[in-house]
Computed example of a mutant assay.
Amino acid sequence: MKFLFIVQGEGRGHFTQAITLEEMLLKNGHEVVEVLVGKSSSRSLPGFFNRNIKAPVKRFISPNFLPSAQNKRVHLGRSVAYNLLHLPAYLKSMQYIKQRIDESGADVVINFYELLTGLTYTFLRPRIPYVCIGHQYLFLHKDFEFPRKSPFSLMMLRFFTRLTSIGCSKRLALSFSKMDDDMHLNIKVVPPLLRREIFSLQPKQGDYIHGYMVNAGYADHVLSYHFNHPEQPLHFFWDKPDAPEEMQVTENLSFHALNDVKFLEYMSGCRAYATTAGFESVCEAMYLGKPVLMVPAHIEQDCNAYDAARAGAGIMADSFELDRLVEFSEDYIPNRSFVYWVNSCERLLIEELEKSTDHRLTLAIPAFFN
């Protein structure tokens, strides 16, 4: 079978999922003919994606979320205003997506949570079936348990998630743990898609705290902790533009530019891990048996963190309260059943994708309301 990927370009998670799934498909005799990536002015394609993806990559302008003035949590008002101003560009992108789907020769399109994919299928109606993959589709599951957050924010999150998947034949929801499928919305619950490199690592118990910040504004929290606890080694990765490969603040504090190999090396040897609650890196920490402090940067990550804490990954906080993480790590017991769940990913995913052409493409508008 031939597949075309459409990948949302915000954060690293969708990129690592796309790389991993391409490797699985190639290993099982399938082909990825093309990868379309939604881009924004605030993000560039990470080097690890360019190095590892095999299929030709093409880019299009896509909606994105803007951080607050403090460069921490997402600012909803600024994001809406920005994306409304760029609406003509997004309409052109939808035409481009439709063209690439029609000309690619693909049997199935796989959407990694890109909003314009759902809108393209709603208004332009490509005839090739598409499947959605992402942990976000668990938010539509009838049995998913949400944190106590703003009902309006949760409603908008679910609404956005539905928009990304209007008319899809199947939603593959990546989950921290096993759940029953939700057949009403064609949701199949599957294990996380982790990079193959994670399976060759030999985790060790180091003395340093490893971390990742999607928004560089959280660096102030890390600096504050460091000056109160200068004896604790800290290695944090960030997406700060124009930052050097390594910025050593003191002997025990370094900020690193995001590098996939280096990131996993530090993960495997750390004492504990602190993050802005992205799904993939929390899963990587769980697989390696590392306790996690999760500091959500937006409502989606609020849900990730709550779900991950329930699955035994670690603890939640409003800021990088690393003293709490150190205390928590002393008695942490890893969830080893998670390892077996992850190891079943390839078999379950390939089975579902090979069946995807058996599903007729549903009509876009009625599917939204199911």
Rank of each mutant, 00 (worst) to 15 (best):
D242K: 15
A272M: 06
I299D: 10
Y212D: 07
Y287W: 08
F237M: 09
Y225M: 08
L234A: 09
E300M: 10
R310H: 04
S254L: 13
I209D: 04
F279L: 01
E246N: 11
Y287K: 08
L288D: 05
E231A: 14
S281W: 05
D302H: 07
R271F: 02
E284W: 05
A274F: 06
H298K: 04
N304M: 00
L223Q: 06
C270Q: 07
H229S: 15
A297D: 11
S224D: 14
I299P: 04
N304H: 12
D207G: 03
D260H: 15
E245M: 03
H229K: 14
N228I: 01
F227Y: 08
L234P: 03
M294L: 04
S281G: 14
T275C: 12
V282K: 02
H221G: 00
Q301M: 13
L258Q: 13
D220S: 15
E265L: 03
A257Y: 08
M267E: 15
Y212C: 10
D242G: 04
V295I: 07
H298T: 01
G206S: 05
M247N: 14
P230T: 03
C270L: 07
P241C: 01
E231G: 05
Q232S: 09
T250A: 06
H256W: 14
A285C: 13
T250H: 08
Y287R: 05
K240N: 07
K240T: 11
Y225K: 08
E251C: 06
A272F: 05
E280T: 11
P244M: 09
P203G: 01
Y306C: 06
I299Q: 09
M294R: 01
A243T: 12
Y273F: 15
E231L: 03
K204N: 02
P241Q: 04
Y273W: 10
S224W: 06
A243W: 10
C283H: 08
G211D: 03
A297G: 15
Y273Q: 11
H229D: 10
G211P: 03
H298F: 15
T250N: 09
Y266C: 13
G269L: 04
A309P: 01
G289R: 06
D260R: 14
K290L: 01
G289K: 10
A274W: 04
